[in-house]
Simulated scan of single mutants.
Amino acid sequence: MFKKVISVLLLCLAFNVHAVPTDDIANILAEQEAAWNRGDLDAYMQGYWNSDKMRFVSNGKFRYGWAETLAAYKKHYPDKATLGSLTFTIKEIKMLSNYAAIVVGRWSLDRAKDNPNGVFTLLVEKIDDRWVITHDHTSD
């Protein structure tokens, strides 16, 4: 009996079964949504990889770097009125490996003067044991 238990444990370890981390990835967007709606862009940016190699693509332009992206957000959304209320709707999270996923969804802003909306595709990677957005392609 003891040998059977050991054999089963060794098989489990050999196959190194991992739970799919889609909940962890969805939580990144939920935390970003909450931070945006509080007007806290610094907290919003915590979902992104804090690196000069982080990429943001929007309106036909490429932006590289966490700090540059935060500065652009603060420039384009200087107050609560321009921030509005953000809603993310995740359409799909596709795991590419144990360390990478593609997230596809919609975004919308509810503001007094307008209601812009669009779509996004994110590359989310596990870096230093933390899921972060390394590439964001957002469009209207």
Score class of each variant (00 low, 15 high):
96 L>A: 07
87 T>M: 11
115 N>F: 11
85 S>V: 12
98 N>G: 07
90 I>E: 10
94 K>H: 08
107 W>C: 05
91 K>C: 09
89 T>Q: 14
114 D>E: 11
125 E>V: 09
81 A>F: 08
113 K>G: 10
106 R>M: 15
88 F>S: 05
112 A>G: 06
124 V>M: 01
87 T>A: 08
125 E>R: 07
116 P>T: 13
88 F>M: 09
110 D>C: 08
78 P>Y: 15
89 T>H: 12
100 A>K: 06
101 A>I: 10
121 T>D: 08
83 L>C: 06
94 K>T: 14
121 T>G: 09
122 L>H: 01
86 L>S: 02
102 I>S: 00
82 T>F: 14
100 A>G: 09
108 S>D: 09
99 Y>L: 15
95 M>W: 00
85 S>T: 13
75 K>R: 11
106 R>W: 12
119 V>E: 09
88 F>D: 03
101 A>G: 07
121 T>A: 07
79 D>C: 07
80 K>L: 12
113 K>H: 12
81 A>N: 05
97 S>D: 05
117 N>R: 12
101 A>E: 03
86 L>E: 01
104 V>C: 08
108 S>V: 11
102 I>L: 02
82 T>G: 07
118 G>S: 06
108 S>L: 12
81 A>V: 13
102 I>Q: 00
87 T>F: 13
115 N>D: 10
114 D>Y: 13
94 K>C: 05
83 L>I: 09
112 A>W: 04
88 F>N: 05
114 D>W: 15
78 P>A: 06
87 T>C: 03
124 V>L: 02
121 T>V: 15
117 N>Y: 13
91 K>P: 06
85 S>N: 14
86 L>V: 05
78 P>C: 08
91 K>M: 10
83 L>Q: 06
119 V>R: 03
115 N>T: 07
92 E>W: 02
76 H>P: 12
122 L>Q: 01
104 V>Q: 06
77 Y>T: 04
105 G>A: 04
79 D>K: 09
95 M>C: 08
122 L>T: 02
125 E>L: 08
102 I>P: 00
101 A>R: 03
91 K>V: 06
94 K>R: 14
115 N>W: 11
102 I>G: 00
100 A>S: 11
98 N>D: 15
105 G>R: 01
114 D>Q: 09
106 R>D: 14
106 R>L: 14
102 I>M: 01
88 F>R: 06
113 K>Q: 15
119 V>S: 10
95 M>Q: 08
78 P>R: 08
94 K>I: 11
98 N>L: 14
124 V>R: 00
102 I>E: 01
92 E>C: 07
107 W>A: 04
121 T>R: 01
104 V>K: 01
116 P>F: 12
110 D>K: 11
82 T>Y: 14
100 A>V: 10
